[in-house]
Design a protein around this nucleic acid. Sequence first.
DNA 1: TACCTGTGCTAAATCGATTTTGTAAAAATT
DNA 2: AATTTTTACAAAATCGATTTAGCACAGGTA
Lengths: 327, 327
Amino acid sequence: MAGVAPSTVSFVLNGKGKQMRIRDEVATRIMQVAEKSGYEPHRMAVNLRTGQSKTLGLIVESISGSFFASLAKTIETEAERRGYNVVYCSTENNAQKGGELIRMLGRQMVDGYLITPAPGMEKEIQHLVQQHKPVVLMDSYFPSIKTPYVLINNFDGVQQGMKHLISKGFTKIGFVMVDVKLIQIEERLRGYVTALKDHKIPVKKKHILQLQYHKQREDSLRELQDFIEANSELEAIFFSTNYLGILGLEVLARMGLKMPDDIAVLCFDDHDIFRLYPPGISVIEQPIEGIAKTAIDLLMHQLDKNSTPLKKNAVELPGKFILRGSA
Amino acid sequence: MAGVAPSTVSFVLNGKGKQMRIRDEVATRIMQVAEKSGYEPHRMAVNLRTGQSKTLGLIVESISGSFFASLAKTIETEAERRGYNVVYCSTENNAQKGGELIRMLGRQMVDGYLITPAPGMEKEIQHLVQQHKPVVLMDSYFPSIKTPYVLINNFDGVQQGMKHLISKGFTKIGFVMVDVKLIQIEERLRGYVTALKDHKIPVKKKHILQLQYHKQREDSLRELQDFIEANSELEAIFFSTNYLGILGLEVLARMGLKMPDDIAVLCFDDHDIFRLYPPGISVIEQPIEGIAKTAIDLLMHQLDKNSTPLKKNAVELPGKFILRGSA
DNA sequence: TACCTGTGCTAAATCGATTTTGTAAAAATT
DNA sequence: AATTTTTACAAAATCGATTTAGCACAGGTA
């Protein structure tokens, strides 16, 4: 349309006009034609040629979770700022699907991966790393896999919460967790145990409830209620995830227990509900924005060919204790 | 690696071996080599050649919203079942960004669009439709744009709720909405007005609050509180979106009003919080799964070249009234 | 024997860009 | 004036697949 060769057009549109000594007159003409005809480069062709899709893959456990929701927003914004798209995928708590997803994205679809690892994804992630694909893990990690990760300092977060409960004079504090073998869960338990020991409070096994990861909602509720009834001496309960905390609210409501007088409640990881639910649930808030930004930074660093390997490949960000009415 | 030409490999791997009369012996060898070497076709190359990305674009207002969360899950599942990926994008209530997003996806990135239209996206969507891109709208639509859409029957949904309130003997019922010019909002208002008229209850303008769409959260809360204080005779309030309902909960809590005795509350569009928040908020639930499935069906139908145009291009699904403690 | 028809595969064109190499014409240098 | 250098582009290769056209060879037919 501009009466020149395709290569000439390519040079001009990619800002290499000067470098290739294209006359301003010709360059201007090309730009005008492109503008007028609404030319948009064919993504696939560009991708094929350049070998880059300018797309990142974000793999999370549940796309409907609130952790994901906040994460996705920040990551999308940050990625866009750097000229990248984001493709979201959720494993929906299905290990097998996790593997498939990664493989699917791996078909040269994405330039890099942001993953919140779930049990069962270890092998697939290991595989990616071995292929030197850029990968950053968030929220958890596998000690065996040498790739950058970002997460909240779980141990310290629980400590903050426990210190508050203890400072309020509580000594009989329950701890509710899931029985999944994940670093972050173990760290939270360690925080609980350590906090008690530091204050010379005996740790009682029966004050710790390990709920099965994948039970029916109703079964979990019952199990939780049994736990609370069996430990009527408890003055406070620390829920180690917001999912558990929400179950807790439901159980306490059923039992007619009032927070914070009948029992104090503290939860790890905030949730919309906790802000609104009377009297407001105190929580350890995750620095989600920080996690997202750091993750993108770590990923971009890997994508940037001519960059020195970072030293800080394992980032732990502090959580924030938010005091509300429940504890 | 198999000692044959690329074209032969292509035929075999794409199941055209028989058709192209490739010997079983050769075909088997090719399959084995492919298997052993872990061959995966290069997505971009395939896309470029076939002209299809096998990817759908899902554009929503807010990726962190609960409507989106449920929608995304179903859509992803359904899309996957049909061999498609999904790319999510959110406009984050930013009309300008909406346009950019669509254009971005439009660079031959996606084969079809699923969009929850927001004000300001009309032109861009119109553009897509004119280019004969497959588009399905959800949750709302533009009367001027001739493309399939699916949404809840807003009018009927509100009617269901209003009938319930009226059957309880309430006659002084407030209606809280936003001032956006969107079909679904207008339909909900029409439902409210019609329900009252049908029962010979006078419609009072001052019982209808139109909140400004993009105010600060605090400002909205204040405005809402003023409204409730100024209309102390109200026996019930109908919130036309869950966002408004949540604001309502916060205001009522501040004012110390108890549901349902001090005031009854009903909300359009369910939310996690409404299940848990005592005494449970009665809602009109959106048939999100149905919307998602129908939307995918409508889109697939457009993607399927050799298919007759559907007659039912405008689908309205019924909402479901869920009775909880608040009304 | 000459011609036609299947068989079983390969060569080459193609998708739409980017990038390397090439090449006339103009300008500068010897 | 002859040669070299620079200018300003164009031609062609390339990315990795798919798809169309083609081409030997075997067997059948006239």
